[in-house]
Amino acid sequence: MAKIIVVTSGKGGVGKTTSSAAIGTGLALAGHKTVIVDFDIGLRNLDLIMGCERRVVYDFVNVINGEANLKQTLIKDKRTDNLFILPASQTRDKDALTRDGVENVLNELAKEFDFIICDSPAGIESGAMMALYFADEAVVVTNPEVSSVRDSDRILGMLSSKSRRAEQGLEGIKEHLLLTRYNPERVEKGEMLSVEDVKEILAIELIGVIPESQAVLNASNSGQPVILDKDSDAGQAYLDTIKRLLGEQVPFRFLNVEKKGFIKRIFGG
């Protein structure tokens, strides 16, 4: 039975696609057959983050319209086994995704895959609603910043009222908080909401804290999911997140300011 996980946030630019790429890759690395589906119709970007932009032939909307089948459309990741990408379409027609069409594609994918990661577009328009409608679990990506937290709370409201699980009276979507671009230095100075602050306001379980990191831009520049950069803080934080998503208990890291050693304090760095 495939598990459908939506990566969502409401607000744009908080790290949904970065997180989708990292989570999908992490699950595949752990041996689970995984597909990442880009729901951002018209603004396709998952392909760039995953480094497969030049291998896109057909897309999600082609499959829905019966112009191509899944086998022709899915892109197999070259670095990670068990990992596939379903690219979004670049069409400007916002209503290209129909609920029945999406359901058929997800059902088809569910026969093949253990995990289906839905990379949601920003906002609360039809694309975002479609990405979350069929979900079993949700990763709510949030920055420690007022507008992002407020938008996440809105999305939490949607998850509990506008999803298939809600409409059919099933058990609700399991919600996880993923805090990204976290800067412990600024938290310590009282310039940024802390993990505890955001947890208290949104009142959902914390699945991961990704520190603000140079590694993220480097990774997207080169089209390589940051989780593959295993020496980086962000990469390690995503690896921890995957373990938690799979049910392991892992202590949180990168929450506090790293104490600089004697040498570093003198010479900087």
Partner: peptide, 19 residues
């Protein structure tokens, strides 16, 4: 007063209202 605690208070109020 630090800005993070201002942010938290403002959020708590608006989020409760919107919920």
């Amino acid at each position: 007063k630090n800005t993070a605690s201002t942010a938290k208070e403002r959020l708590q109020i608006i989020v409760a209202h919107e919920r």
